[in-house]
Design a protein around this nucleic acid. Structure first.
Lengths: 220, 220
DNA sequence: TAATCTATCGAACGTCAGTTCGAAAATGAG
DNA sequence: CTCATTTTCGAACTGACGTTCGATAGATTA
């Protein structure tokens, strides 16, 4: 229904086929900052123009649509996160080890790319059609990796992973913890991210009944 | 900075001081449905007019602002939920019992008022000034009630509750699980809500290491 | 019936948004 | 220097949005 016509060029309006584009990255970073604060719908292209110093019309050299701008932010940010996580999983280890790595990476990445990842988390549904599907696919990949770990902890065989609602729910509970952080994290108050990760792992693995995790200052 | 001028009348533009207003409730329900689907920013007053059958101008008899419309939805929905939870807590019981009640109530309420509660969850930041503060206050109340339970499970004394980051984090992790549901819940797939609650309690209390919760069909 | 209050309407106003476009600088190669 | 390509600009168009307002029924009261 909602089609998009990527006419030959592969993402942005003008040329720019190079892997990394510093000016575009800068632009996307600023746009993400605005969208993280005011939301996609409330952020105008004119806001982006003012904040970046680029003229209103000039922006359309970098993206062909407002929605395309959002897509570029999400694709790049989420893509990089998933690459990171893929590498982390490739390192192997038992389920708990991999889970801990995943959570820590996620939290570290979220600290370094707060605005961008917040936009990824909140504004998926502002995309439509192909663009929506492309990002949804990335999310599905992430979901499956975590679900596999949950299933492994519980000893659920891989072929029953899809049909077992308990694995699905537990996985989504964990994602809820991870993603909800954007609503409350306060850099000053909640300082060491790795400790946050440890606390989360402690809750996920052993629950409240095991008591609070140790209050030490730092670890690896 | 951003002031609102409630000139005498107490919330809506016209009169209407009665406790329950069926037509207003109907209106708010439809508005919540639109906002849940497309977000506050993307939902226009004209959309609400079309969907309700009330004329564009006529809507302003019920609220004085678009933001006021959002506020009314949040205040009523969240207010009712908190009343429910206050009553549930008043019933007493140990920490786990109260936690289970809280979670179950939350999930049941979320099923019955999906759109409205989704709007409450996502659109707090679309409010400003006094209206923002009023809703934020309600949320704070909810947070504290859950934090108290977490602290009780861990045996953290009430006066150290505020300063202990671990209580804060664990509480917010649980809220994350609860609120993230709006992004994935599928009425057909994830049928019995009470079981969802039990699975969540199982994870929160005992963690993944305790193994998956029993797969029974239903309980109380 | 006259007066008052509640509820509703349609038209209009002003603003701001996304997008387009042709021209013009800047850049870099031959 | 010349020329083609890349990048940037400012003005303009078009549509949608929130909000206002005077008019108007219907209901209620005196």
């Amino acid at each position: 229904m909602t089609e998009l016509d990527r006419s030959g060029t592969d993402g942005n309006a003008g040329g720019m086929t190079s892997r990394t584009a510093p000016k575009l990255d800068h632009l996307l970073g600023i746009a993400a900052g605005l969208m993280a604060r005011r939301g996609f719908g409330r952020t105008s292209i004119r806001d982006v123009a003012n904040e970046t110093g680029i003229s209103l019309g000039g922006l359309y050299y970098y993206f062909k649509n407002k929605e395309d701008l959002l897509f570029l932010i999400q694709e790049r940010t989420f893509g990089a996160l998933l690459e990171l996580q893929e590498a982390a999983l490739a390192e192997g280890g038992d389920a708990e080890t991999r889970l801990r790595r995943l959570v820590r990476n996620h939290l570290r990445y979220f600290l370094d790319h707060f605005n961008e990842l917040k936009v990824c988390t909140y504004e998926l549904e502002s995309l439509e059609g192909e663009r929506y599907e492309a990002i949804a696919e990335l999310r599905r990949w992430y979901y499956h990796r975590l679900a596999e770990i949950v299933a492994e902890v519980w000893g659920v065989p891989g072929d029953r992973l899809e049909s077992d609602g308990r694995v699905r729910h537990a996985t989504l509970f964990v994602f809820g913890m991870l993603n909800w952080i954007f609503t409350w994290y306060d850099a000053d108050r909640d300082k060491p991210v790795d400790r946050l990760g440890d606390e989360m792992i402690a809750l996920v693995m052993d629950g409240l009944r095991a008591g609070p995790p140790p209050e030490r200052t730092e670890s690896s």
